[in-house]
């Protein structure tokens, strides 16, 4: 049974990585939010699986918190945001998707290389997934860099947080509850503040394209 569940954790990890790639190359904002929700769900599922195998009860609470926040509250907020901003059907022009994907693969190789010595030290059953967690983190970072619009950047930021949470569960059975609560609150507040910023940006420049912010530079 345990063996099966360990395999399951690895499967979830693979799904998270694939979703990260999908988000990296996704151009539609609405689909991006769906993908993000899906990623959140997968993270929750893998956390529950780890909790079941290791009998770490506090991980159930973490999973419940993440479910509430990442799968319901934040997607709901994002949906509302894009409706209010009227960007629901927006399509972003991405430059050179194949190059971005290739760089992403290089990043994955790099993170596996990086995780190898750390995973050897770790006693966790999910230690094999640490490389995937780091790769997800870097891919989300890449996403923030390559996007020109504000909403996808926020999603990249949130997805980075997902990857961090996943890394924490797989390496050390999760962070202490206090830290987790703090981070959850931070993310929520961050989303709210960034939402306000988006309205401000649009009011100022009549667009959500953040390349307009270049005008703020001093010469």
């Amino acid at each position: 049974m345990d063996n099966l569940i360990t395999q399951l954790i690895n499967l979830f990890a693979a799904v998270i990585l694939m979703l990260a790639f999908a988000m990296l190359s996704q151009r539609r904002i609405l689909t991006l939010i769906h993908l993000f929700t899906l990623q959140g769900l997968t993270v929750v599922a893998s956390t529950v699986a780890v909790a079941y195998v290791t009998h770490q009860h506090h991980l159930y609470y973490s999973a419940a918190l993440t479910l509430a926040l990442k799968c319901f509250l934040i997607p709901y907020l994002l949906h509302r945001l894009i409706n209010r901003l009227n960007v629901r059907w927006d399509i972003e022009t991405l430059i050179n998707i194949p190059t971005i994907m290739l760089i992403g693969i290089v990043l994955v190789v790099f993170s596996f290389n990086l995780a190898l010595p750390i995973a050897k030290l770790s006693a966790s059953i999910a230690r094999g997934t640490l490389g995937i967690a780091i790769a997800c983190f870097l891919l989300s970072f890449m996403m923030m860099i390559t996007r020109a619009k504000a909403v996808p950047q926020v999603i990249g930021f949130l997805s980075m947080e997902n990857a961090l949470f996943f890394a924490a569960t797989s390496a050390t059975y999760g962070m202490p509850m206090v830290v987790e609560l703090g981070i959850a609150l931070d993310v929520l507040v961050g989303v709210l503040i960034l939402g306000v910023f988006m309205f401000q940006i649009r009011e100022q420049f009549d667009s959500l394209d953040i390349s307009h912010l270049e005008k703020l530079k001093e010469d």
């Binding site: 860099i145 390559t146 996007r147 953040i210 390349s211 912010l213 270049e214």
Partner: peptide, 17 residues
Amino acid sequence: QQGRISIYLLYSFITLL
């Protein structure tokens, strides 16, 4: 100082790597 958010993010990304 380029004024582009993505460039600033790239700085921290490269530093992190």
